[in-house]
Nucleic acid binder design. Structure first.
Lengths: 221, 221
DNA sequence: AAAATGGTTTAGCTTTGTCTAAACTTTTTT
DNA sequence: AAAAAAGTTTAGACAAAGCTAAACCATTTT
């Protein structure tokens, strides 16, 4: 159970998230995600390869090794437990927790995290609706649907937001959409893929396709 | 309200603590405290001087400037609040908290620390008996006496341990001395400066002068 | 099939924080 | 007051993590 630098951890985490969206992760994608330059990514990939955290052939993209995934789940566990702590105990709003957790996640004392987990009552999902890996790295893969795929008039509950930039969180806050909100899609427009949705105690309102693609819901029952 | 690197913060903190023991802090003392080399200390002193955190003339030692002291108190506030959190909420024993807090103290979000302070109920002393600076950097300077200066047979309460190395904590644990323990000095031996002390429910036992110098007590009432 | 394009890697430089070895001050000893 | 010892600073290196610019592959276009 080795320790990795903050920088290494950030790369590992970025690749972990990206490889859900693409078979093989590219240099550019990582550079873009971490707001760094492709050349820096290549350097780090060489380093992570020698540490056996990823599979990588020059020009061919990369994927985390089993060990790499294990490490990534550890980092994500720390991140999400801190997010939960910040929201639940310190009363941060759900759009404030991410940034602070980005720093706390790199304090890697196993004992600290396991005791924190226990103190919080072993929570299973964080304030963004993302599942929290347990001490063994097991993670709940919950059945959820993107709101773009939700049938018209089907009541559902917002359970996850995939992008976590300040920009999207600001927008969601403005529209008063948060984890747990009940929603129904009332209409879709083919022209620009916008959709009208209905939430309790609120008039119908429109959201863009760009926003909708990041909102995931669970169908009740 | 600038931000400083982990390394800078560690130097600032070390100087803050050392300047309580010596008028002017020396290069060697800092190197020793941080387990680093004198040359590295000189480099950092030049840097902290340009940042106006300390007064420093080559070969003459240094002291923190007002700004330096302000920054130091901020770091110590973070450190001690985390220690309190770890002991009080996560049930770490008092000899385990220091090491983890060393890492957490460098996460410098003002909002995080102020909310943590509030969540903990604005505690005034940490698990080692050290006072916690408030949000403005004010720190309680409590009237306490080193056990070496305590009159014979004067009942007192252990309130502070100045060294916090793993070694001393191990020894204190073994002797069952902790913050809050009631003690009386029964006898002193001039030959080696050891002393015999008495604690409730325990037979008389001996402590070395080296240990005694680090134990501070408050006289009841 | 050659050219153009776009993505990736290499080479070399920068900064931060560390180190060793040598040079330089200051203090202590004789 | 010289010499020795102790402490401090300088000079030059190194590793980590980043950058720019140039070179290099791979794929797509023509």
């Amino acid at each position: 159970m080795l320790n990795y630098s903050t920088s290494e951890e950030n790369y590992i985490k970025a690749i972990f998230h990206l490889q859900k969206e693409m078979e093989t992760v590219t240099t550019n994608a990582v550079a873009n995600e971490l707001k760094t330059k492709p050349a820096s990514v290549t350097d780090m990939m060489k380093k992570l390869k020698t540490k056996k955290l990823l599979h990588y052939k020059p020009y061919q993209g990369f994927r985390l090794s089993n060990e790499g995934n294990r490490v990534a789940l550890g980092i994500i566990r720390r991140h999400r437990l801190w997010e939960y702590f910040l929201a639940e105990k310190l009363k941060f709003t759900w759009d404030e927790v991410h940034e602070v957790a980005e720093h706390l996640e790199h304090v890697s004392s196993k004992k600290l995290i396991d005791k924190l987990d226990e103190y919080l009552g072993f929570p299973r999902i964080d304030p963004h609706g993302d599942p929290i890996p347990d001490a063994n790295g097991k993670i709940e893969t919950s059945r959820q649907v993107c709101i773009t795929d939700l049938p018209i008039n089907q009541p559902a509950v917002v359970c996850h937001v995939s992008d976590q930039s300040a920009e999207i969180l600001e927008l969601l806050k403005h529209k008063q959409i948060s984890i747990g909100s009940k929603v129904e899609v009332k209409r879709r427009f083919d022209f620009d893929n916008t959709m009208e949705i209905k939430m309790r105690q609120q008039p119908l309102f429109t959201i863009s396709n760009q926003l909708a693609k990041n909102i995931f819901v669970k169908i009740e029952g």
